[in-house]
Design a protein around this nucleic acid. Structure first.
Lengths: 233, 233
DNA sequence: AATGAAGATTGACATATATCAATTTTTACA
DNA sequence: TGTAAAAATTGATATATGTCAATCTTCATT
């Protein structure tokens, strides 16, 4: 409880888990962020941001892991990416309709800073380098969506699932053995298939000795083979 | 020939087909664009920009129509959108790796202004309002990719084809009867299916009296029904 | 008009994928 | 610890979609 209080009020200047982007701010700018931010903890499963709501703040993920997903047709969702600590989350709403165009849900206990959007925009317009970095960040996100568009529409299930697992390995955990933060259903949402199909593809992968799932952990046994499946489609 | 020469050297200040965005520039800025632009005509079928190449310029489409597409796996492409006159084309490469992340091919005879990227960036950083509008434009493009990601992965063929046709109607021609600028194969690339499937879906649409294709023209006969198919998926 | 190339069409077929229903396993919590 | 709810699994089946091969049409060019 005291820990909760401590962290929620600590100053940005002392923060170790601030997203890279904000390192480009000077003291005054950081003080402005400081004065206009809100620190919040979320339990696993809680909704951090809901698609369609007004974008009053931008986000910086301090700790934990979350899924960022688009809510599509008839309750079906497409997970765009997994959000890990120290990453900044803005989105196309900042400069269009000031709404959130995706939802974010905590996968494990997480903490997030909400930074007032108007303050953020003001700083953006006054700090050239910061603005450039912000755009770089945004552009990278866009490129990854391009990439997903292609692989989700041009590969079949095994290739898509391989890509999803390789993504977890390459971009999130960087280890062959990592905790299963996603349910089968969520893995299905990440690779655009039905829950049952996800189960079957994973079973096949395990049968072929590509990976092992046990005790809430996944271990990739044959990275090279996964890469090959990803390539073949 | 004289016409060609005329148009290629005319000044931006006099240009009627400059993209909206540039209306926000002052005289000096426009003069800078003027001095650092290249005007080029393309014949139908010619490649305007090739994915992967160095982004030395940003584009403004003066006349004609073009397809903007991502070249994906094994020669397969996904058409992102149709580009019509007076639209600006930048893309995520501007602020990431300075490469083009899509290709653009003229569908009909077209003309394009190429504006030096460094000059463009310099103007961006000096003109707040211009920068905001640029970001709005970019954000809209991103939102449309979100949208496509959802509908390409969550709808089946008839729904996807209906969306493609409605897109041509709503966003490009704004008429029920319009020229068939896309081949069946390109319609397939726009709606993520095989050439043959596109043919069959279109045949079904025609059988049901939703549309008519003849003499290089498509006429939508039952807009409401198309909307319904789009909704049902 | 004749020719050939590209595009469009078709039906048969194979395959990928979703759906359904039943069952088992895991998890949460009273 | 027991119990209910949620998640995962499975096999059977239906459906959507791609692939193939053959044919037909259109169009540009000689």
């Amino acid at each position: 409880m005291s820990e909760y209080f401590d962290k929620s009020t600590k100053r940005c200047a002392d923060c170790q888990s601030m997203s890279q982007l904000f390192c480009l701010l000077n003291q005054d700018e950081l003080a402005m962020v400081d004065a206009n931010k809100i620190f919040v903890r979320f339990n696993a499963g809680e909704t951090i941001k809901k698609q369609g709501t007004f974008m009053s703040h931008v986000l910086s993920v301090n700790s934990g892991l979350a899924k960022l997903y688009i809510e599509g047709i008839e309750g079906r969702s497409a997970i765009l990416r997994i959000v890990k600590p120290t990453s900044f989350i803005g989105g196309p709403g900042i400069y269009s309709d000031q709404r959130h165009h995706f939802s974010i849900t905590a996968l494990v206990d997480s903490s997030v800073c909400f930074i007032d959007l108007q303050v953020f925009k003001k700083i953006l317009s006054g700090n050239q380098l910061f603005a450039e970095e912000f755009l770089k960040d945004f552009s990278q996100d866009v490129l990854s969506v391009y990439n997903r568009l292609i692989y989700l529409t041009q590969k079949q299930m095994p290739g898509r699932m391989a890509d999803a697992l390789l993504y977890l390995h390459d971009a999130i955990f960087r280890k062959l053995k990592f905790p299963m933060i996603l349910s089968r259903f969520e893995l299905a949402e990440l690779s655009a298939m039905s829950r049952e199909s996800a189960v079957k593809v994973l079973r096949d992968f395990q049968k072929e000795g590509l990976l092992r799932i046990s005790d809430h952990e996944m271990e990739i046994l044959d990275l090279e083979a996964l890469h090959k499946i990803s390539r073949v489609g």
